[in-house]
Nucleic acid binder design. Structure first.
Length: 271
DNA sequence: ATGGGCACCTGGCTGC
DNA sequence: TGCAGCCAGGTGCCCA
């Protein structure tokens, strides 16, 4: 699913609805997510006031008066705001019911997502502590990325998808950013030139920011908190466009496999 | 430390 | 029509 723009769009959609509300009930219909939902998950949340909804990488962090909910949407998950009483559909695994009469509903067909409560600093949690910088922050700059890439033989596409290097760049936006930067996805990270890192960092920031503006990219499952899809798909240059003409030079877009994931690029525009 | 490959799971599409 | 095979917005873990 969701890469950073989709998670950020979800965060913005649920923030004002959740903030300052009290959780009156939590219903776990299916606890079999990536990690089983803890038996005390509902009890930890019930009766608590929501103070804030933040994001770190692709994790949503719901700050409660006591503790934090760490929520990940996996490949196919979505969080929606609905009225209490809305009948659950297939794959609707968790409801968080609010005092306002609305509820937060988690749907995840593939169950790669997770939801857990922690009473400690969420930034120190095992899932989060090791993560690299946020791509839209100032610390993510060409000097940082070039330094991280020194001596690395891994392909540049897999390198920018490595959450220890930089977070939030998933399979769609990795291909899109490399196209915009004019860099071949299979080149070794350590061989990328200084000016190319400048273009790449700029491309990552621009493509993510542009996607957030239009609510992210919907390929199959993803919908935002209101149930509407993201519209960035219309602005994709290469992703899922194998064989179609490059929007810039008309050369057919190539598809290759890297790390068991599909990569798309223009053999003319990207060198 | 680094890189590669697999696993987790459901559903939709393709081709025989 | 049926079914096997392949593919899909992620990422932790195991192995060499």
């Amino acid at each position: 699913m969701p890469e950073l723009p989709e998670v950020e769009t979800t965060r913005r959609g649920i923030l004002s609805v959740l903030k300052n509300q009290t959780i009156t009930q939590v219903v776990v219909r299916d606890a079999r997510l990536r990690w089983p939902v803890s038996p005390d998950f509902a009890q930890r949340l019930t009766g608590q006031r929501v103070l804030d909804v933040e994001r770190r990488a692709k994790y949503l962090l719901i700050t409660l008066a006591r503790g934090t909910v760490i929520w990940h949407l996996g490949m196919s998950g979505s969080l929606r705001i609905l009225a209490v009483g809305t009948p659950p559909q297939v794959h609707d695994h968790i409801d968080v019911v609010l005092s306002s009469g609305r509820l937060l509903r988690f749907n995840d067909p593939r169950r790669f997502g997770c939801a857990l409560w922690t009473g400690d600093d969420p930034m120190q949690h095992d899932l989060i502590a090791h993560l690299g910088p946020e791509p839209l922050s100032e610390v993510f700059d060409p000097v940082y990325l070039a330094d991280q890439a020194k001596g690395r033989k891994v392909a540049i596409k897999q390198f920018i998808m490595n959450a220890s290097v930089v977070v939030g760049v998933g399979n769609i936006y990795a291909s899109e950013a490399l196209f915009r930067a004019g860099i071949r996805p299979k080149r070794m990270a350590g061989q990328i030139k200084r000016d190319e890192f400048q273009r790449l960092v700029r491309a990552i920031k621009v493509v993510l920011a542009d996607a957030i503006k239009v609510g992210g990219t919907t390929l199959r499952d993803y919908v935002n908190a209101n149930g509407t899809p993201g519209y960035f798909r219309q602005k994709l240059f290469v992703y899922e466009r194998a064989g179609e003409p490059c929007r810039s030079c008309k050369t057919p877009i190539q598809q290759v496999t890297q790390g068991n994931r599909s990569t798309y690029y223009c053999p003319q525009c990207q060198q």
